[in-house]
Amino acid sequence: MSMEYKDSTEYKNSTEDKNSGDVKNSGEKKGFFARLKEGLNKTRNNIVNGIDSVFNGFSAIDDEFYEELEEILIMGDIGVNATSDILQRLKKQVKEQHIKEPAACKQLLIDSIREQMQVGETAYDFEKKQSVILVIGVNGVGKTTSVGKLAGILKDQGRKVLIAAADTFRAAAGEQLAGWANRAGVDMIGGAEGSDPASVVFDAVNAAKARHVDVLLCDTAGRLHNKKNLMEELKKINRIIDREFPDAHRENLVVLDGTTGQNALAQAREFGEAAELTGIILTKMDGTAKGGIAVAIQSELNVPVKYIGVGEDMEDLQKFDPEQFVNALFDGKTEEE
């Protein structure tokens, strides 16, 4: 049996107390780009300093020069496939432009990395259509908070949003999500702890249709008794949505922890076996040395990073902007500074 939480005061007191500091300190808080740039300090030390040493340490562009660059990019979690694509593009441009000095092709490398992360024009079509967004990922990556923040983003765009709290296996997951739903100002359909997640999604889908909701956001379990059960549960939920809401635009977003590097990639591949992934939400990018994973993901999975998170507050999740990310990574400047 599912339960519904409206914009009630049920969770308001605790969430208002907990987040009262957000308002007080909002004037002092840095902008998103400044926080992203600060958060990528460790990644910058991991990748950019090494790249600079290659460009400054070599007098000629030769095989050894490219091998050094390759090693630094792979060690920086940019991944084998992405590194190969980036260096192939770089070699082609160096040849076409008759570049001889290593330092002269640094900007070409930066542009090549940026090109590797383009999101695509249709990536955010779900914002304009009646959509069901399934948010998946293991426990501890920031999945539930990402659902709450995404609800806030869509609500601010004037969309009518409903949340389905289908993570019925983790203790207090529903209560945590209800707090986020309250902050975002949206309704939520939930279930008792241990109840069938698919039944919660079934009820939420029918409520979304009846209320003419623009976007239904479904939080899902990050862990069951074993991996096979978890994947089967996701497939079951997908079948219900396909059957009950066939005309809805579908999004399957996997939430990955940016601090886990290549492990995040392995998780995404596993979830990709149970659901056709359409995008990545990359969290905890404030302070990771493995930020290069943002570059690797699209090349390795052919799935774009759509959102990036740099903190705990509602506004700390934003659309992924490759230009902004590369500027932050390579210590670039924007108008904000």
Rank of each mutant, 00 (worst) to 15 (best):
G39N: 04
R114S: 05
R44K: 15
E70I: 02
D52M: 10
G39F: 06
K95W: 10
E67D: 14
F32W: 11
G31T: 08
Q107R: 10
G39S: 05
G79Q: 02
K100R: 14
I113E: 00
Q116R: 15
L73P: 04
F32H: 05
L108T: 04
L87I: 07
F32P: 07
E64A: 13
G57S: 08
G31Q: 12
S20C: 07
S59K: 15
I61S: 08
Y66C: 06
G39Y: 08
F32G: 07
V94T: 07
L108V: 00
F33K: 03
E127P: 02
I61H: 11
K100F: 12
A34H: 13
I74V: 13
A103Q: 15
S53F: 11
R114T: 02
D77H: 01
Q88K: 15
F126I: 03
T83Y: 02
G50V: 02
Y124G: 07
E64S: 13
R35M: 11
T83L: 00
N81C: 08
F126M: 10
F65M: 05
A123H: 11
D111T: 00
F32N: 06
F33C: 04
K37D: 03
V23L: 14
E96F: 13
L108E: 03
D77N: 02
I47H: 05
D85G: 06
L40C: 09
N81M: 13
Q97H: 10
D111G: 00
G120V: 04
D52A: 07
A82V: 04
I110G: 00
T83A: 05
G79I: 02
E28Y: 14
V94I: 15
P102R: 08
D85L: 12
K92H: 13
S20I: 07
K42P: 09
F126Y: 15
G50C: 09
E101R: 14
M117F: 12
E71S: 08
I61F: 10
E96W: 11
L90R: 01
A123E: 07
Q118W: 08
A34N: 12
V119K: 11
A60P: 00
E70Y: 08
D77L: 00
F55A: 03
D63E: 12
D85M: 09
K106H: 10
L87T: 02
S53I: 08
N25I: 05
G79R: 01
D22E: 12
R89I: 00
T43R: 09
F126V: 02
D62R: 04
Y66G: 02
S20H: 10
E101Q: 12
L109R: 02
V54G: 03
I47Y: 03
V54T: 08
